[in-house]
Amino acid sequence: MIDSIADGVLPDHILQALADQGAISATHALADRQIQPASLDLRLGDYAYRIRASFLPGQGRSVAERLDESDLVLHRLDLREGAVLETGCVYLAPLQESLALPLGVRALANPKSSTGRIDVFVRVIADGATSFDRVREGYQGPLWVEICPRTFSILARPGDRLAQLRLKKGETPTLNRLDLNLDLSHASLGSVIGYRARRHAPLLDLAKVGGHAPHDWFEPLTARDGRLVLDPGEFYILASQPGLSIPRNVAAEMVATAEDLGEFRAHYAGFFDPGFGVDGAGGPGARGVLEVRGRDVPFVLEHDQPVARLVYEPLAAAPAAFYGDVGSHYQGQGLKLSKLFQPWS
């Protein structure tokens, strides 16, 4: 099947065909809406390890072997009744999904939007990996996810979806690069131009979508004269200027770190599926919501400055459903917190 498909990001119906053929397998059947227009959500398994430090297995070595051979493991958590993953700690959990990729098909992982917006840093690891979030072509084996809550402790269970996977065939060319400019205008956004995370906030339950009042976790921000000073180490939710859309014939990825754009890290979660923000599907005029963390020194952000980049890539084929057709939480979004929170009021 793969030989007859054009190079590019693989859409939903091809992902489903790969699952039917066993190239994507799981300990539990794929769940409803787990396959997105151009990506696959990944689910936590039954347990997680609290580890001393992050690591990569390296060529020829599996993640499980590294855990068995080293003193990295501090203890094991059973997620089946729910377990708290604490702020500042590093965890490693097996995912329910495994891969048996055909030659010529590789995979790229990224945090889901809802994960990035609660400042949980996640990275996917494959056996033999020498880099995070990359799965080589022809890979056969399990997948693991490293989880590090940065600001909020979280309550996690099997099946929670913290990361997503995009499969690509061939050398997909970059079609376009687009800088996203920051919106700090009260005329555009209203009285609140962003949010800053509160320290020492309550526990966040990943299963309670829309079940958290946001005031205990975030404080609203205003901008004087279109400027905002980032404090080092603090986490912010900000928004790009409106007008963002992803055409139905491409997929896009937000570049997580653009060193030349300033003393901050913008956007943990980077996949934008085809149809995001387009006219007739919740757009036009959508914004990119930016998960921003200040670096080593205070830094002044100004209205209209570039803060992140989008990279556009071709699809191997048109998806069966576009973003927004599947009840997406962030279609046509403005400045918006994670789906775990109630609307700000």
Results as ranks from 00 to 15, higher is better:
residue 165 L to A: 08
residue 247 P to I: 11
residue 240 S to G: 11
residue 243 G to L: 06
residue 166 R to G: 05
residue 210 G to W: 09
residue 212 H to I: 11
residue 191 S to I: 07
residue 252 A to V: 12
residue 217 W to D: 01
residue 244 L to Q: 03
residue 217 W to K: 01
residue 183 D to C: 15
residue 232 P to K: 11
residue 169 K to G: 06
residue 252 A to D: 03
residue 252 A to G: 13
residue 170 G to Q: 10
residue 243 G to Q: 09
residue 190 G to D: 12
residue 229 V to H: 02
residue 199 R to M: 08
residue 156 A to P: 02
residue 236 Y to Q: 07
residue 210 G to E: 11
residue 216 D to Q: 13
residue 223 A to P: 06
residue 220 P to F: 06
residue 229 V to W: 01
residue 169 K to A: 13
residue 214 P to R: 03
residue 203 L to A: 10
residue 186 H to S: 14
residue 219 E to Y: 00
residue 222 T to V: 13
residue 241 Q to H: 13
residue 179 D to G: 04
residue 252 A to T: 10
residue 154 I to V: 15
residue 235 F to V: 08
residue 224 R to E: 15
residue 148 C to P: 00
residue 152 F to M: 06
residue 228 L to P: 03
residue 205 D to A: 09
residue 256 A to G: 14
residue 147 I to P: 02
residue 247 P to A: 07
residue 164 Q to V: 06
residue 208 K to D: 12
residue 186 H to K: 13
residue 221 L to H: 07
residue 218 F to M: 07
residue 253 E to Q: 09
residue 229 V to N: 03
residue 225 D to V: 01
residue 246 I to T: 06
residue 168 K to W: 09
residue 192 V to F: 09
residue 219 E to F: 00
residue 162 L to Y: 04
residue 154 I to M: 05
residue 225 D to A: 15
residue 242 P to M: 07
residue 211 G to T: 07
residue 172 T to W: 09
residue 235 F to K: 02
residue 169 K to D: 08
residue 206 L to S: 04
residue 251 A to L: 00
residue 214 P to M: 03
residue 177 R to C: 08
residue 251 A to D: 06
residue 230 L to P: 05
residue 232 P to M: 11
residue 149 P to F: 07
residue 216 D to F: 02
residue 168 K to N: 09
residue 179 D to N: 12
residue 217 W to N: 01
residue 150 R to E: 15
residue 165 L to K: 04
residue 216 D to I: 00
residue 194 G to F: 09
residue 212 H to D: 10
residue 215 H to I: 02
